[in-house]
Structures are given as structure tokens and as C-alpha cells.
Amino acid sequence: MKRILAFYFLLTAFACSSDGDKPKTATNEPTYTLIFLDKTRSVNADKSFVRQKYQQALADIIEENIRQKGDRLAVYFIHENTAKARALNVTARTEMEDMVAASPTDREAAETEFSLLLSREKAVIRQRVLQQLVAQNTGSSNQETDIWASLPVIEKANETGATVKVYYLSDMVESVKGADRRDFQVRPPKGAAQADEWAKADAGKLKRYTLGSPDITMILPFEPNASVKENNPAVTQYWQTLFTELGVGTITED
């Protein structure tokens, strides 16, 4: 009996050790990445600085967030009909084998193969995303910038139960005509106080969207020496406050 118990404990210890030593290449919880590309007249992605910044940002986003089978990435265009402007939707297919009972040599070989296949899949995804970056929008939809319309898209992503990460490659200049909308092209907030006031007022209308706690990053198309008139800090202050009021997680400006 003692020998049987000893053997049982050895098996249990090995199983626990194997679980703890599983490769950390993949995690259990999938990531849902939302990328909103500004396709309005106020953002020129053909400009050298903007193109290089956005190409690098997109490469980094894919590298960080596509890690395992089930990770999703969607690209939406920001313009007058943002909520209906999905341009790309992909799901990672590369899967790490279950190597619980594998030898160290077999496990290392499996990890190497997984990394290679995942790198290839990332390269394909990166190419498809970059194609959307250079896509032109010469239609009338480039006249308005409806960033509010991204909120129901985030809400739907939150419903999947995945870890949601949101990236706006935009100047964040909301510009929609209408008495109950903001048009920062015509009337931007004059300072942080007014930006906070407007954001809190608007949050009352937008709290019908359940966003969860996604990480949000605003990647602005402005050079470091851009003037305050071009890169109005009160505009991003508005979004910082609005997103905070809506209960999102981390908010980053780049």
C-alpha cells in the first residue's frame, strides 16, 4: 500500500510540475484587438511621418496581441459610418500542441515549430492590415469623423469575454453635424476644463454602451513639434475623460 501511495504522489507531483512548466508562448484567455483607422480628410496617412509611425504601430500591435489560436483582430475605418465600416476581421489559427507528457526535447521542438508558424501567420495578418492603412477613401464619407460610433463596436467585442484592446489611429477630432453632436473642426474645446465638462455631459448619453474595461490607446498623427492649433491637447483630454466616465481600463496617448 505504501508503494502504491508513493507512486500516486510521484504522479501527482509530475503532473503539477508539467502544468507549471508549460510553454508560456500562449495563454488561455484570447485577445480581441480592435483597430480604428481614420479615413477622413483631416488625417493624411500618405505623409511620411504618419505612414512610418502608423506602420510601426500596427506591426507592434500585431506582435503583442496575436499570440495563440483564437486571438482576433478587426479593423474598422473611422468616417461618417464608422460602426458599419469593418474592413478586416481575422482570427489566429496557430495552435500550440498539448505537451504535458512530452519529453523536454519534444517540447522544445514543438515550441520552435509553434513560434515559426505563428510568425508566419503574423506576417500575413500584418500585410493585410497594412493594406487597409493605405486604402484611400475619396467618397463623401470622409467629410465627417464619427468616433462615438466606435462604442457599439467595442461593446460587441466585450460581449465575447475576450481581453479587449482598442487602438485609434486618428487625430481624434470628432466632427459630426447635429445639435446633439460634437464638431471639433468647427468648435473644439477651449481648454481642459471645458473638455472635461463636455465629456461628462456626453458620457451621460453614451453610458448605454457597456464597454467593460478595455485598454484604449490613441495613436495620434502629429509630429513632436506640431502646434497647439494642430494638436489640441483639449481634444485628447475630452477623450481621456469620456473613456474614464464610461469605465474603461487603461487609456494611453501616443
Rank of each mutant, 00 (worst) to 15 (best):
D71M: 12
S18Y: 04
T241G: 01
L246W: 00
N142W: 09
C16F: 06
Y209A: 00
A193I: 03
K122W: 09
V50T: 12
V248Q: 09
A199S: 03
I61M: 12
T91M: 15
M99P: 00
A234N: 06
T210F: 05
Y167R: 07
V164Y: 05
G212D: 00
G191D: 13
Y167H: 14
K207Q: 13
S18W: 01
T138G: 13
A59W: 02
T40P: 10
P23A: 10
G247K: 03
F9N: 05
V153G: 05
A92W: 02
P221V: 01
R181H: 12
K69I: 09
D146M: 10
F243T: 02
L116M: 12
Q132S: 04
N28R: 10
G70P: 08
K22N: 07
Y167L: 08
R208D: 01
F184M: 12
T31C: 12
A135W: 07
I147L: 15
N65Q: 08
R187C: 03
Y54P: 07
V90D: 02
V50I: 10
E111V: 13
N89Q: 11
V176P: 04
A83L: 09
A101V: 13
L116H: 12
A59Y: 01
A109L: 08
S103K: 07
R86W: 01
N89P: 03
L11F: 02
A192I: 06
A135T: 13
T25W: 10
A109K: 13
I251T: 14
N81L: 12
S140R: 13
T163Y: 08
T27R: 03
A234I: 03
K53L: 13
G249N: 05
A234G: 06
R51S: 14
G139P: 08
W239Q: 03
L220K: 05
D215Q: 06
N142R: 15
S140I: 11
P224G: 09
Q237W: 05
I66L: 14
Y168E: 11
E97D: 11
R128C: 04
D38V: 03
T31H: 09
M99C: 02
A110H: 04
V50A: 05
Y238C: 09
T217Q: 08
I35W: 06
Y76W: 08
P224I: 13
Q56Y: 05
E197L: 04
E111I: 09
V90T: 07
A226M: 04
G161W: 03
L11Q: 03
V153D: 02
P224T: 07
K22L: 10
T160P: 06
N137A: 09
L130F: 07
Q237K: 13
T31A: 12
L88D: 13
A83M: 11
A109S: 07
K156R: 15
Y8C: 08
K2R: 11
L88S: 11
G191P: 02
T138E: 12
S170P: 10
I216A: 00
P233S: 06
A157N: 03
S48C: 14
Y76G: 10
